[in-house]
Structure formats: structure tokens, C-alpha cells
Simulated assay, not measured.
Amino acid sequence: MSKTDSFSSLTLFAALLAFAGAASAGAVYTCKDTDGKSVYQATPCSIDSLNDTQASDESRRQEAVLQAAAADYAQRIKEVEAMMENDVKMNQTLEHKGQ
């Protein structure tokens, strides 16, 4: 492999890494700064930078996310409780067999 081929391969690899990083960066949010100019950022806009309709929509979106997270958390707690209950039953069975 020549130096040119190595350099081309390395350049291609670096470009792919850069592209992969940009692709995984996620959403880009368009917000307004204090002067009303558009600002682009990787995190959601603060409520202060949104107009009333956007703020209301963002509040509803955040509420939905929180409700989904709470439901997921409740489900995980139920699963852990069921696992613990099974462990207790297994321990009781083992203790009973050991007597």
C-alpha cells in the first residue's frame, strides 16, 4: 500500500467518523435569543425563548415525556417486586427442603 493510499484511507476514515458523530448528534432546535434572533442548539429551547403557543406545546410535550417515564418507572418497580417475591418463595422452598 502506498503512502497516498494510506492517506486516502485515513482521510476517508476520519470523514466517516466526523459524519457518524454529526449524524448521532440528534435534533437541532431553533430558538430565539433575547433580541429575537434565531439560535440553533442541540438542547430544547428554554420556555422563556418560546412564544405562548410554542411554550404551551413544549409544556405538553414535557408532561407527556414525564408521564411516560413515570409509567416506565412504575412498571420496572412491579417487575422488581415480582422478582423479589419469587426470590422469597424460592428461599422458603429451599428452607423447607432443608428441614
Rank of each mutant, 00 (worst) to 15 (best):
residue 63 E to K: 15
residue 66 L to I: 08
residue 29 Y to M: 02
residue 88 V to W: 01
residue 20 A to K: 11
residue 85 E to S: 11
residue 58 E to H: 00
residue 38 S to T: 06
residue 22 A to V: 07
residue 36 G to C: 02
residue 45 C to G: 02
residue 28 V to R: 06
residue 31 C to G: 07
residue 84 M to S: 10
residue 62 Q to E: 10
residue 85 E to L: 05
residue 98 G to V: 04
residue 58 E to N: 01
residue 65 V to E: 14
residue 96 H to E: 12
residue 93 T to V: 03
residue 81 E to L: 09
residue 16 L to Y: 09
residue 13 F to Y: 09
residue 32 K to D: 06
residue 25 A to D: 09
residue 75 Q to W: 04
residue 14 A to S: 06
residue 73 Y to S: 15
residue 57 D to R: 01
residue 87 D to Q: 12
residue 60 R to T: 03
residue 38 S to H: 07
residue 81 E to P: 03
residue 50 L to N: 02
residue 68 A to R: 15
residue 76 R to M: 04
residue 9 S to G: 13
residue 44 P to N: 05
residue 99 Q to S: 11
residue 38 S to Q: 12
residue 37 K to W: 06
residue 28 V to P: 01
residue 59 S to L: 14
residue 85 E to H: 07
residue 45 C to Q: 03
residue 31 C to H: 05
residue 57 D to S: 02
residue 42 A to K: 14
residue 21 G to Q: 04
residue 68 A to C: 03
residue 6 S to L: 05
residue 60 R to Q: 13
residue 46 S to D: 13
residue 6 S to K: 11
residue 24 S to E: 13
residue 69 A to Q: 15
residue 81 E to R: 15
residue 68 A to T: 09
residue 80 V to A: 14
residue 7 F to R: 13
residue 94 L to C: 01
residue 38 S to D: 12
residue 80 V to N: 08
residue 79 E to T: 05
residue 33 D to G: 01
residue 25 A to N: 09
residue 71 A to E: 11
residue 61 R to K: 12
residue 31 C to R: 05
residue 95 E to F: 04
residue 63 E to S: 10
residue 46 S to R: 12
residue 47 I to T: 13
residue 62 Q to M: 08
residue 22 A to C: 11
residue 23 A to M: 09
residue 62 Q to F: 02
residue 78 K to Y: 02
residue 30 T to A: 08
residue 96 H to Y: 10
residue 58 E to V: 00
residue 47 I to E: 07
residue 70 A to G: 01
residue 89 K to Q: 05
residue 54 Q to R: 02
residue 69 A to H: 08
residue 28 V to Y: 02
residue 41 Q to R: 14
residue 85 E to Y: 04
residue 67 Q to T: 05
residue 13 F to Q: 08
residue 52 D to F: 02
residue 26 G to H: 04
residue 21 G to T: 12
residue 70 A to Q: 06
residue 30 T to M: 06
residue 38 S to P: 13
residue 64 A to M: 08
residue 49 S to T: 08
residue 69 A to E: 15
residue 33 D to L: 03
residue 44 P to A: 05
residue 77 I to K: 10
residue 85 E to M: 06
residue 97 K to A: 12
residue 18 A to R: 07
residue 58 E to T: 00
residue 49 S to N: 04
residue 98 G to C: 07
residue 54 Q to G: 04
residue 59 S to G: 07
residue 7 F to S: 15
residue 46 S to Y: 05
residue 28 V to D: 06
